[in-house]
Design a protein around this nucleic acid. Structure first.
Ligand code: ZN
Ligand code: ZN
Ligand code: ZN
Ligand code: ZN
Lengths: 132, 132
DNA sequence: TGCGTCACGTAATGTTATTACATGAATTGT
DNA sequence: ACAATTCATGTAATAACATTACGTGACGCA
């Protein structure tokens, strides 16, 4: 659980994401940080790039947006693939891990000689609260 | 295995995707169809929307691009979630299904009361040929 | 004929992401 | 102390991806 030294911009971006209820697009983050001196998309994208490297943030491909990791205490990157359930009504995102799925994907890739670098699993739908 | 009647534009787009080695972005499709009278992105996006509905085409979220379904004879939509392995070197895409993964995801969503509408599974990495 | 639906066309605009270039601070090796 | 290198940052411009708004003609059906 090595703690990383974040730069000022990285800290600002991570704080915004951590405080947010749901995922945010890069441009939404930019808007939220204009008061703190952010003026260009690149400032956000550069910070996000590092935060993704550190495993502190995840990118939701199906939403073109970003969330703070929900399992920071566990060093997310270390325990396999992460999956997300995304509610299309309220925007809530649940992050989870599943070793059976991991194993199954690994078994497929090994069988094919495919060397995975990054795996995306995203379930869009309605959360329990919205599915009344 | 009901065959759908495609419109002219839908046929053109599907043909381009079917002939293509790998996934194509909407704008690449547009360029390839300029000779056939395509002039605006919307023509492509409208055709893609229908082809996605029909299950003849898949969208790769992590690539913002589209592929023809590799299992048309099996009526792709009918047998659960589709997964893709995408080679970051040669661009080749392998489409596959795995019932264990399906079951595992379904068991998670049932447990949470989450009602899935669409699931994305994409593995980025290096295919066997590129991973020498 | 009048009406609704649907595929299509065109233009404009909105959203997301990257490239190119410049500056200043911190780090390293001598 | 000095040059060389690296890294975070700033700014502007542009590229890539996607949607909204509006209008037309074809078709099926009361
Ligand atoms: Zn995480
Ligand atoms: Zn919800
Ligand atoms: Zn398919
Ligand atoms: Zn390859």
């Amino acid at each position: 659980m090595s703690t990383v030294n974040l730069t000022k911009n990285q800290t600002l971006v991570l704080d915004v994401l951590t405080r947010s209820e749901g995922p945010l697009s890069a441009y939404t983050i930019l808007d939220k940080l204009r008061d703190h001196g952010f003026r260009a998309p690149l400032q956000v994208y550069r910070a996000l790039e590092k935060l993704l490297e550190f495993g502190l943030v995840h990118r939701l491909e199906s939403l073109n947006s970003f969330v703070a990791c929900a399992h920071r205490e566990h060093a997310c990157c270390s325990h396999g693939t992460v999956a997300f359930a995304i509610c299309e009504s309220c925007g809530q995102v649940s992050e989870f891990h599943d070793h059976v799925i991991d194993d199954q994907l690994n078994s497929w890739t090994r069988g094919k000689g495919f060397k995975p670098s990054k795996t995306t699993i995203e379930i869009r739908g309605l959360c329990a609260a919205c599915n009344i």
